[in-house]
């Protein structure tokens, strides 16, 4: 067993224990603090899985802003929940049934970390490897279309279906002239984004991110409408 899997298992076990604590403690302040701990554990898990941007966001948002938000709510409401029965049997039954169906659904998933899983070999990956945030072959290539993209993928004789598609690249990097002939052209760090997460976020999924930003804006406006005191009228 690799150290990666060992750390992953330990952190996930801790996260499960903390999650049970979040649900079961009576004091809401304790639940909030356990929620912050849970978020930090998730950030560690994602760092372990190399999802650095996600870990960054979770540490800032989950452990920081969420905790402030929940503590602020507790100031307005109350610190403790009512005494409830220890185990809610219908809920437990529902949860166990749903959980076993979902686990039964995961048995056909590809192995954890399998590089030949469909998610790593599909059409999306070809698109990612070719275009997102890359310097183009001729330097300026304004009106590229899906047809030119398809041509270029045919031209390329490297195994571009594997992810990342440019993994065989490396030796032919002396001059720009020969770079276009084989492998991915101009695949150095001039003028485009080495962080593929950001380039995907802003370019490949630009529409999606725009509407996510609109969702955040709407949430802020909802907060203002629900909670802001009307000082002018008072």
């Amino acid at each position: 067993m690799s150290s990666f899997l060992l750390i992953d298992m330990i952190l996930l076990g801790l996260a499960a224990v903390v999650a049970i604590g979040v649900i079961s403690v009576r004091s809401l302040l304790s639940a909030t603090m356990l929620g912050g701990i849970y978020s930090l554990l998730m950030a560690l898990i994602w760092q372990n899985m190399n999802a650095v941007d996600v870990a960054f966001t979770e540490a800032a948002v989950g452990a920081g802003i969420s905790t402030v938000l929940l503590v602020g709510t507790l100031l307005h409401t109350r610190r403790e929940t009512n005494q409830s029965p220890a185990i809610h049997w219908p809920a437990l039954l529902t949860v166990v049934l749903t959980g076993s169906f979902l686990i039964y659904g995961t048995v056909d998933m590809p192995d954890y970390g399998d590089a030949s899983a469909p998610i790593h070999t599909g059409r999306v990956q070809q698109l990612l490897g070719q275009r997102v945030g890359k310097v183009d072959n001729e330097g300026v290539h304004h009106a590229w279309t899906y047809s030119t993209m398809a041509e270029q993928s045919v031209e390329r004789d490297e195994p571009e279906r594997s992810f990342p598609p440019e993994r065989s690249h490396g030796e032919d990097h002396g001059g720009d002239a020969e770079a276009g002939a084989h492998g991915h052209p101009n695949d150095d760090f001039k003028g485009h984004s080495p962080n593929t997460v950001t380039s995907l976020l802003a370019a490949y999924r630009g529409y999606d991110t725009m509407y996510e930003t609109a969702v955040i804006f709407t949430a802020g406006m909802a907060m203002v409408l629900l909670l802001r005191r009307r000082e002018e009228r008072a």
Binding site: M49, N50, A51, D53, V54, T57, A115, I119, H120, V124, Q125, L128, F163, P164, E166, R167, S168, H169, G170, D187, D188, F189, T196, V197, L200, L201, Y204, R205, D208, T209, E212
Partner: peptide
């Protein structure tokens, strides 16, 4: 550029937002 392999960034993007 290092050859990798790199993890799949698409899932990271989805979860980040």
């Amino acid at each position: 550029k290092a050859a990798g392999p790199y993890d799949n960034p698409l899932t990271h993007v989805l979860i980040l937002t």
